[in-house]
Design a protein around this nucleic acid. Structure first.
Lengths: 216, 216, 216, 216
DNA sequence: CATGAATGAGTATTCATTCAT
DNA sequence: CATGAATGAATACTCATTCAT
C-alpha cells in the first residue's frame, strides 16, 4: 500500500465540520472504528449508517450524522485513520534501511505484516478507495491526495534507478503494480482467513526484487 | 485478465430463466450492453435498474426484470458476455505462440489491447467481480468458476517452471500479481482516458518477464 | 355449500365477452382448470396470471387476457364452473330424498363427498367468494346471485318448519351456520390432506340434525 | 371466536423488533389502529402500506417500515391487539358462569357483542388469519398459537361431555363449527351494517345449545 | 450530547394489460 | 389464435438526513 506515508491528508482536515483536534474525540473514534469493521465485513456500499451505529453500540444513526458531515466525511475519516496507522507502522521499518532494494522489501513485507495485524483497517480503506467516483469534490481532492502519496514512492524508485541500483523500467507502472498486488492480497485476506499473508509478502518482495533489479 | 479462457461459463447458462440461445436475443443483448456502460461509468452498486433502463432507452425498469431473473442474473450475463468477448479476442493471440514467455507476454498485452478497444467491458466485469460478496449462491458459483479459470493459467506457469523456461516462484502469487496489475489498469483507464494502456501493457509484460525468467 | 343448486348464474353469462357456448371452448376450459388449481394452492390474491398461464402450459399471460375480459371475468368463470359441477353432483343426491331432514343430511354429506373428490374446485370457489369486495359491479351482481342461491335453501328450511318436521329457529342463521361449517372444512382440507372430510361430513350432519329437529 | 382466551400470545411479543412495552407506544398503536380499519375495509391483501399510512395520517410508508419489521410484523401486532381486546372482554363474561352450557352461551354471545362494539377489530383479525399461508415461519408459529387457543376450548367441551352435561359429539368438529359460524357473521357484518349481530348471537347460542345438549 | 421519530427519495420487483407480429 | 415484448402503476422496503425533545 504505502512505501512511505506523507502528511498529504492535511488538506482534508479542513473540510471537517466538527472536531478539529488531531486525535479524534471519543465518539468520533468509536464510530470510525465501527465503520472500519463494518466496511471490512459487508463492503463499502452495504455499510449503512444503521449497521455502523449498531456495531458501535449506538441506538440511533442520527448520532453519526451529528458527528460527521455526511457519509463522505465519515469515509474520509476512516481512510485518514488507516493512513495514520499505516504511517506509524511502516515509516520506521522502511527508514531502518538505506539501500533502495531493502527499503522496497521492507515496504512490501511491512504492508502485509500490517495486514496480518489489522486486517479490517486495510480492507476498509482499500474498499473505500476502490469504490470512489468523482461525485463529491471533497472526495476527488482526497483521491488526488492519495495519488500524491504514490508520487513520493515513485520518486524513490526513480532515485534508485539513477543510482544504478534498479534497472530500467517505468516507475509509475512498477509502483502501481506493487500497490495492486498488495491490495489484492488485502481483498483476498478478508474472505480467506487461512491465507498466510506474511508468506505472500515475502514472495511478492522476491517477485518485485527481481523485477526492479538491474539486469546484468 | 485472462491467460487462457476456458469453457467455465457453461454452468451459468443453465441458470438463465429466459433465452437459451447462445447468441443473445436483441433486447437482452441491448440491456447487457447498457448495463456494461452504466457499470463502467458509475460502478456496480450505483448501477441501478433505473439508470440502465434509461441508458438502454427503455421506458421502465420493469422491462429489465422481465428479461432477467433479478439483478444477479443480469450481472452474471454481463460477466458472461465479457468473458465471451475476451476469450474470442485472446485465445488466438495466445495460441499463436509456443514458448511460455511469449504466451505470457501475449496474454498481458492482449488484455490491455482488449481494454483499449473495449474499455467499458473490462471495467464492468472487474467492478462486478470485485464487489461480489457471498450473498447469492449463484454468484458464488460464478466466482468459483472465475477462480477455476485462474487455476488453468497457474498450471501454465507451473509447466513453464518444469520445462526450465521460468524460474522458481510461487505460481499462485505470481498469477494474482499479474491479474491485479492488469485489473488496476482497467480501473484507472475508466477515469483517465489519456492513459496509454497499450504502452502500459508492454511495460507490464516486460516487468513480469523479468519476474518470471530463470535467474542465471 | 349448496343444498340445492339453481340456475341463478344465468345472469352472469351475459357479461362474458367471448364464447357464449354452454360448454367452454377448449382454451377457456383449460385456463379455468389451471386457475382452479393455482387458486387452491396459493390463494386467490397470489394466483397471478403468470402462475395460471404457467400451470396451463401457456407461454404467455396475454393468452388469458385474450380469452377473458380481465381477472374478474376469469374468477367469475371459475365460480360458475364449480357451481355447475356441484349442481350436477348434489342435485340427484338431494332429490333422492323426500323428508327434509334427509335432504339436509344429503346436502351436507354430499358437499363433503364432493370436497373429497374435487378438493381444488371447492377450495378455489370458497377462496374467491371470501375475498370478494364490492369493487367491480359485475362481481357484486355475482355475489348477489350466490346470495339468491342461498335464499332457495333457506326456503327449504322454512318449509320444513311449516310442516313441523323442523323446530323453531331462524332459518337464515341456520343456513349460514351450515354453510360456514362446510366452508371451514373446505379451507382446512386444502392445508391438511390427512383430514377425513367424509367423517367430518357425517359429524356435521348429525350436529345440524340435532340443531334443526323439533325439540319434544 | 374465543371461548377462553389464553396467554398464547406471549411468544409473539419476543419477535417484535422494537417497542418491548406491553402497552403500545403511540405511533405503533396508531398504525395498528389504522391497519385494523383498512383491513376491515379493503381486506388483508389490498391493505397496502400506502393505504394504511394515509389512513393513519402519515406522510410516507417508510414510517411503517420504521416502526414494524415488515408487513408480517404489523399483521402479527394487529392480531395480538385484537386478541388482547377480546381476552379482556370475554374472559370475565365467561368466567361468571359455572355450567358449561352457560359458558358456551356466554362465549358465543360475547363474541358477537364484541363484534357489535368493535366491528373492524374482529373483521381484520378474521381476514388476516383466513389469508395466511405457510410463507413466513413467524406467521406459521402464530397460526399454531391460535390453534392452541382452540385446543383449550375443545378441552372445555370434552369436560362438559364427561360430566354428562353435553351429549356425544366430536368436540373438534363442534368447536370449528361454532368458530366458523361466528367468523361468518364477522365477515357479513363488515359489508352489511344493518345486520343485528347481537340477535344473531342469541340465535347461534340457541342453535349450538341444542346441538351440544344431551339428547334424552 | 443523545435519542428516536419523521421525511422523502430511491431500491428491485410483480402485476394485468396491450399490441404488433 | 398465439406469441412475446412492452408498459406503467403499484408493491414493500432501505437509506441518509433532519429535528424536536
Amino acid at each position: 500500500m504505502l512505501m512511505q506515508a506523507k502528511n498529504s491528508t492535511a488538506k482534508q482536515k479542513e473540510r471537517r465540520t466538527k472536531s478539529a483536534s488531531f486525535t479524534e474525540t471519543g465518539r468520533r473514534a468509536q464510530i470510525v472504528a465501527a465503520a472500519i469493521d463494518v466496511i471490512a465485513e459487508v463492503g463499502y456500499h452495504r455499510a449503512s449508517f444503521a449497521k455502523i451505529a449498531e456495531h458501535a453500540g449506538l441506538s440511533s444513526t442520527g448520532m453519526i450524522s451529528y458527528h460527521f458531515d455526511g457519509r463522505d466525511d465519515l469515509m474520509r475519516e476512516v481512510v485518514t485513520e488507516v493512513l495514520r496507522l499505516g504511517d506509524g507502522y511502516l515509516r520506521p521499518r522502511i527508514e531502518a534501511h538505506t539501500r533502495y532494494a531493502d527499503r522496497l522489501r521492507a515496504s512490501i513485507e511491512g504492508n502485509l505484516d500490517l495486514l496480518a495485524e489489522y486486517p479490517n483497517h486495510l480492507a476498509a480503506m482499500v474498499d473505500i478507495l476502490a469504490n470512489l467516483r468523482g461525485g463529491d469534490p471533497g472526495m476527488v481532492a482526497f483521491l488526488e491526495a492519495t495519488e500524491a502519496n504514490l508520487t513520493v514512492q515513485v520518486e524513490q524508485l526513480r532515485k534508485a534507478q539513477r543510482t544504478g541500483e534498479f534497472g530500467d523500467f517505468d516507475p509509475w507502472v512498477m509502483m502501481r503494480a506493487i500497490r495492486a498486488a498488495i491490495d489484492d492480497v488485502v481483498r483476498r485476506a478478508t474472505h480467506d482467513p487461512d491465507l498466510d499473508v506474511r508468506a505472500v509478502g515475502r514472495e511478492l518482495a522476491d517477485l518485485f526484487d527481481r523485477a526492479t533489479r538491474k539486469t546484468p
